[in-house]
């Protein structure tokens, strides 16, 4: 059988689902070896997925209309999941806390599962229509998704924060399920770092989108629903960044903002395509 990109990418879906399950087991039963295995599986999945993406790229050239695999919903979901894993692995490597994986890898596996199994998402390689024939497409999509992936991880950290906070009163022992989560201060710091990182890339994403729109249509901003929703998302994270400078707005509200912000990301990404109409609607399908 010919090794095809869709084969590798569907395989990735299962690897990531397995990794997420391993991270969960590692967290709940606190077995160190399972955690190490989870990391190994995640890195393996990441390599398989990278190969899948590169293969898909070469396949598009063989079809005669080569372009980077970032042009439709399927490809963007795959890329989203790829960056989420990348951002997570960097955090794991720097912070050395595998528990975070239980809250971060599920986003990547869900994105892959949705891309692979939803009948709404076509995985065929399509040629680029004129509006998409621009190098700004690459810059725009890559930067936006770096932002989105960081926000997914920040959302995971926000959920961890709330879980830790709710359970903190009756379950403080370091070997318990709640106790094994990082301290609130550490989570708050990480969440803030991740949100700033995501915010930086979302800003670059919005700006590259504006430059591109200006080149393709002659307006850098036209209040199209997708643009507007990315701005709404941007406002939410700007709120989260400033919330820590207001007395009484402790980590808990920032954790909620991080979750709401990610819901807004999801709506910007899918909701706008499926529920509202606009310039970006070619992204659906």
């Amino acid at each position: 059988m010919n090794l095809s990109s869709s084969y590798l990418l569907s395989l990735t879906t299962f690897i990531y689902l397995g990794a997420a399950a391993l991270y969960m087991i590692h967290w709940i039963f606190r077995v160190r070896q399972v955690g190490v295995l989870a990391t190994v599986v995640t890195v393996g999945g990441f390599l398989v997925q990278t190969a899948g993406i590169i293969l898909r790229w070469t396949e598009s050239y063989r079809l005669g209309y080569g372009h980077a695999p970032l042009s439709n919903l399927y490809e963007s979901l795959v890329f989203f999941s790829w960056v989420t894993i990348l951002v997570y692995l960097v955090i794991e490597w720097r912070v050395k806390r595998r528990v975070i994986g239980a809250f971060a890898t599920p986003f990547a596996s869900l994105a892959m599962a949705y891309a692979s199994f939803s009948p709404k998402v076509a995985d065929s390689i399509e040629p680029l229509i004129p509006a998409l024939q621009s190098n700004w497409l690459l810059a725009h999509v890559i930067t936006c998704f770096l932002g989105y992936a960081s926000f997914a991880v920040a959302c995971g950290l926000g959920i961890m924060y709330l879980v830790k906070m709710k359970g903190a009163h009756h379950d403080e022992k370091p070997e318990s399920v709640i106790g094994s989560l990082p301290r609130l201060k550490v989570l708050d710091d990480l969440m803030h770092q991740t949100i700033i990182f995501g915010f930086l890339w979302l800003s670059v994403g919005i700006i590259t989108g504006a430059v591109w729109a200006n080149q393709a249509w002659g307006t850098y901003w036209s209040w199209d629903p997708k643009e507007t929703w990315s701005l709404i998302t941007w406002f939410i994270y700007a709120t989260a960044l400033h919330a820590r400078f207001v007395r009484g707005w402790a980590g808990q509200r920032i954790a909620w903002l991080s979750i709401i912000g990610f819901l807004s990301v999801i709506f910007t990404y899918f909701g706008v395509n499926f529920l509202l109409s606009g310039l970006h609607s070619y992204g659906s399908g």
Partner: peptide
């Protein structure tokens, strides 16, 4: 600033609906 950021986020939804 926080109030305005939230107000802008919420009211911006109107024009997309």
């Amino acid at each position: 600033a926080i109030f305005l950021l939230i107000a802008l986020a919420v009211t911006s939804i109107i024009g997309t609906i």
